[in-house]
Every structure is written in structure tokens, then in C-alpha cells.
């Protein structure tokens, strides 16, 4: 990456770190926290879908698993909240490894339906296992996180925690993309057979991608549980899975930073524009459809060629010919 770009990115993140000092009230900080949590989950999807080409449409299930496990461990079993978060992340990752088993054989629509079914099963279980999850009434009274003896209660404290985790996750994912693993995943995405012939362990790589994705989503979910203190099955529906997926697509699939930017922006947007609240998923889906269907790349190419053509003619205006 060019140094100027690196500098610009560093400045953006520095500004983001200072943002809570300028934001008018706590509500905005809270929305940013939600955006950071979503962005964390989107990083997982960038690894899974963008790099590995495996579609997961039940991604909110990992978020739900992380959130509910952490809540249940800290409330019902009385674990310290940090340990409960780790348990939630661990359970989500284990289920991520399980979900990679169908991906060994299946691809395309078959795999994506598999993930939809997984997401629905998790959602139905959170509604129906009333004794554990309190079902449709929602799980409340989740204690706030205590990290190294310090209680993280205020919105601002959460902001800094999520911000630093996000920066760490971005660096890790960017590193992953340039490592052997990232290149192997790209090879699998382009051609699975060829990748296998080149000596890539396709199954191990797929499992790794799923575990990374589930880890990110589970972490985001577990933190979200302690941040909001209240969980309801209503907020973990298939629509949420799709909105995570559309954040990934809007961010350019492969780009970690793009995914993070789209994750934060598409969480802020419906909050800032209240009239969109009801219909934002409709608008997201339309945006995704347009991004996929419009030949953006060739349009860019044509625009570039046109600009180059203009520059070659030395700024001659097209109607200059008429005066001759």
C-alpha cells in the first residue's frame, strides 16, 4: 500500500478515536458502537465470502450464539463476564467449524441454503428454548463487562474498547489476506480443483475461513450482549444476516477496509435518516442488486479511456471543428 494512502487511513482512524469527544450525545456514541460491532462481524464475512468465495446467509446465527452463550454463562452460571465472552466466542467458533463440513461437498446455492437453514434453526431455538433464553420475551439483566478489574459501563468506554478491537481485527485480516492463507483462499474461490492440484488443503482452508468468520461474529455478538444488557430474538432475524452480507458486498467483498466502512456507514445511515428506518433493507437490497448488475468495472475503464482521450487531444473542444 502506498504511504500516502496509509497516512490517510491512519488519520481517519485517529479522527474516529477522538470522535466521542465531539459527538453531541451518548446516543450517537451508542450507534457508533453498534456500527463497530457490525463491522467486526463484516470482517469475518470478508474473509469467508470475499476471500474464500463461500456465501454465508445465516451469519447472524454466530452473532446470536456468541451473544446468548455469553449472556447465559454470566447470568445463569454466574461466570465473570470476561470469561463468559470467551465462552461465547469459543462456542461460535466451534459451530463455525461444524458449518464448514457441508462446505466440503456443497457450493453455490446449496451451501447458501445450508447456512440459511442453520440461521433459522438457531433463531427458532432461541425462541423455543424458553428455560435457557427466556424465549420471545428477551433476555435481560446481562451484567456489563469487567476487563482487568475495570468495569466497562459507559458508552464512551465501550467505544474505545470496540475501536481498538476493530483496529486490531483490521490489521489481522489485512495480514491474513497477504499471507499464505489469504492467497490459498483466493485460489479456492477462483477454482477449487486447481487449488487442490496446487497442493492446497482445501478442507482445512475452508474450515479455517468459517472459524475466522464465526470468531469475528461471535466476538461481536458476545460484546453486544454485555453492551446492550438486553437480547431479543427479534433483533437476530434473517434480515440481519442479509444486511451483514450486503455490507460486505457494498464494501467491495474483498476489501477489509471497504467492508468496515460499509459496516459502520450502513449501520449509521438508517439511524440518521429516520424515514428510512422501516425500509432500509429494501434500499440495501436494491443497492446490492445494482452493484452486481451494473458493469461498474467496464464503466470505470471506459471513463478512464475517455479522460485519457480528452487529455491527448490537448483540451480541444469538440465543437472547435465547426468554426473551420
Amino acid at each position: 500500500m502506498r504511504p500516502e494512502r496509509l497516512k490517510a487511513i491512519a488519520i481517519v482512524f485517529g479522527l474516529l478515536a477522538a470522535a466521542p469527544l465531539f459527538l453531541p450525545n451518548r446516543y450517537y456514541v451508542y450507534i457508533f458502537n453498534r456500527g463497530f460491532a457490525n463491522a467486526l462481524a463484516v470482517i469475518g464475512l470478508v474473509i469467508l465470502f470475499g476471500m474464500g468465495g463461500q456465501i454465508s446467509l445465516g451469519h447472524i446465527a454466530f452473532f446470536t450464539l456468541g451473544a446468548y452463550t455469553s449472556a447465559i454463562f454470566s447470568v445463569r452460571l454466574g461466570w465473570p463476564s470476561a470469561a463468559a465472552v470467551l465462552a461465547g466466542v469459543a462456542l461460535a467458533s466451534i459451530w463455525g467449524a461444524f458449518l464448514s463440513v457441508p462446505a466440503f461437498k456443497l457450493s453455490g446455492p446449496f451451501l447458501s441454503i445450508c447456512t440459511v437453514a442453520f440461521g433459522e434453526v438457531v433463531r427458532l431455538l432461541t425462541i423455543n428454548l424458553v428455560s435457557l433464553t427466556n424465549g420471545p420475551y428477551g433476555f435481560y439483566g446481562i451484567p456489563s463487562l469487567i476487563l482487568f478489574g475495570r468495569r466497562i459501563g459507559s458508552e464512551k468506554a465501550w467505544y474505545f474498547l470496540l475501536w481498538s478491537l476493530l483496529v486490531f481485527a483490521i490489521l489481522a485480516a489485512a495480514r491474513l489476506k497477504r499471507s499464505y492463507i489469504g492467497r490459498a483462499l483466493a485460489a479456492i474461490r477462483e477454482d477449487e480443483t486447481a487449488a487442490e492440484v496446487m497442493g492446497i488443503n482445501v478442507r482445512a482452508m475452508k474450515t479455517l475461513a468459517f472459524v475466522c468468520a464465526a470468531f469475528c461474529a461471535g466476538l461481536a455478538g458476545a460484546l453486544y450482549a454485555h453492551m446492550s444488557g438486553f437480547l431479543s430474538p427479534e433483533s437476530f432475524t434473517g434480515e440481519q444476516s442479509f444486511s451483514l452480507f450486503s455490507m460486505t458486498v457494498v464494501g467491495g467483498q474483498e476489501s477489509v477496509l471497504g467492508g468496515v466502512a460499509a459496516g459502520v456507514a450502513l449501520t449509521l445511515l438508517p439511524e440518521l435518516m429516520r424515514f428510512l428506518q422501516e425500509y432500509y433493507i429494501m434500499i440495501f437490497s436494491l443497492i446490492v442488486l445494482l452493484i452486481v448488475l451494473l458493469p461498474l468495472e467496464s464503466m470505470m475503464e471506459r471513463a478512464k479511456m475517455w479522460m485519457a482521450g480528452l487529455a491527448r487531444e490537448g483540451g480541444k473542444v469538440p465543437w472547435g471543428r465547426c468554426s473551420k
Binding site: I55, G108, F242, S246, I281, S285, L286, V288, L289
Partner: peptide
């Protein structure tokens, strides 16, 4: 095929 799949998913949500 992935592109086709994504566009149909988006269509269904839309």
C-alpha cells in the same frame, strides 16, 4: 455463478 446467486438473493430480499 456467485454473482448470479448474489443478485437473486438481493432480488428476493427486495
Amino acid at each position: 455463478p456467485v454473482k448470479a446467486l448474489v443478485s437473486f438473493i438481493a432480488l428476493s430480499i427486495f
